[in-house]
Design a protein around this nucleic acid. Sequence first.
DNA 1: GAGTGGTCTAGACCACTGA
DNA 2: CAGTGGTCTAGACCACTCA
Lengths: 250, 250
Amino acid sequence: MTARPPGGAEDLPRYAEIRRDLEGRILSGEWPPGYRVPSEFELVERYGCSRMTVNKALSALAAAGLINRRRRSGSFVAAPRSQETVLEIHDIQAEIAATGKPYRYEVLDRAARPATAEEAGRLGVRPGAQVLALLVRHFADGRPFVVEDRLVDLATVPEALDEPFAAAPPGTWLIGRIPWTEAEHCIEAVAAEAPLARLLQVAKGTPCLTVERKTWQAGSPVTWVRLSYPGDRHRLVARFSPAGGRRQGA
Amino acid sequence: MTARPPGGAEDLPRYAEIRRDLEGRILSGEWPPGYRVPSEFELVERYGCSRMTVNKALSALAAAGLINRRRRSGSFVAAPRSQETVLEIHDIQAEIAATGKPYRYEVLDRAARPATAEEAGRLGVRPGAQVLALLVRHFADGRPFVVEDRLVDLATVPEALDEPFAAAPPGTWLIGRIPWTEAEHCIEAVAAEAPLARLLQVAKGTPCLTVERKTWQAGSPVTWVRLSYPGDRHRLVARFSPAGGRRQGA
DNA sequence: GAGTGGTCTAGACCACTGA
DNA sequence: CAGTGGTCTAGACCACTCA
């Protein structure tokens, strides 16, 4: 029963072929939400392969959220999910480098000190905990690109205390040094206050896109950062396809 | 060789246990980027299980981007990835309902007509193609929450032509009716022009967060939508953990 | 050539749960 | 109780690629 389909053997592994086939029926609407997908045994017969192979295809579909599986009942086409997107927020240096424009940054402020109440709340440490506060401005093509306001928890990253961030900006330095296990992002539109407007060289009140990120490692705060982009010079773009093509790394 | 570890049998399946173990070593930094993970055969011996089981754990880690696998060479801990987040953008009705505030919407404009050049560019159809253009305002607690500017490709979704969107707003109607296979998002901060400001009942020039989304089904455009939120009333929040806890459905 | 991952098989036992 | 998925085994062949 290892016969290949004579027509369109597309060189995909068997399980991928099966997955694509089932996926096509779901995405085309031929199998609407709630439809009961054939059982593993039925698919084993239909495709002439072993159960493990069919199972691999079905598990992938379940992981992608296209079907729900229940013992004894079977597998059912899932209701369409909420619009979802994977937003990759790159290292700023890499982001600017990708545009081909010359990159430069300057550390405007750098201070290790006990966290104020507000900073402690942002970073998720107790007030008075030692933090490293940084203010960095990044330039693309000589123009201000983004202002970076950062707090680093010195309890989690003590080696940051002696780092001058002369060779690499804090974001680049931190990534690749501290593996993070959890991150929370908050994206909003704000009007530039006077200090920010001055740093970005825009008029006061200019809409800015801010990305706030809090990062943890195994439950311990690592860093909090707010990136403020001039709204007319930056946008976040993301493309997503639900059929599981996520994560191509690097 | 089916001996269970005597200490902490956590009731996880064997492959999940192995995965967690390896993941812990990677995320803790014990196995730094570039480190060569033991081969499948070594892991088979170490954990006393079959190769398929080890393979399942390693495949999951590779899918999550924590390791790279190369034939003949082995599996290697991947370089930390760019900061990434999964942003779920919910149906507006559901989004407001989640806040507990009363929800209401009104269709301000609804016209089926040939696409202008600009509209055709947005939606990805040829100029003159029949589209349904919609302008909808959503209210939370009686206040304008978001303005929805939408184009629907009538070639892909002909049934939209006869839909008055009286029972449900276009977004809700479309989702659950048209399975989408690909979406592109663009998020930016803009100053509200006069018409938008009037609709949102904010001052002209107020920073607004706009989310533009283009949706395809198997290569055919489905809909283009721009959602404009007053910046001081809305933010996008997302939490992400790289260890694979994505996608809990619904 | 040999080590590695990629895939697949033909079984098996179990847990769960709906009829 | 019987059907379903969840997991696992002990092999196997192959493709690739580094040494």
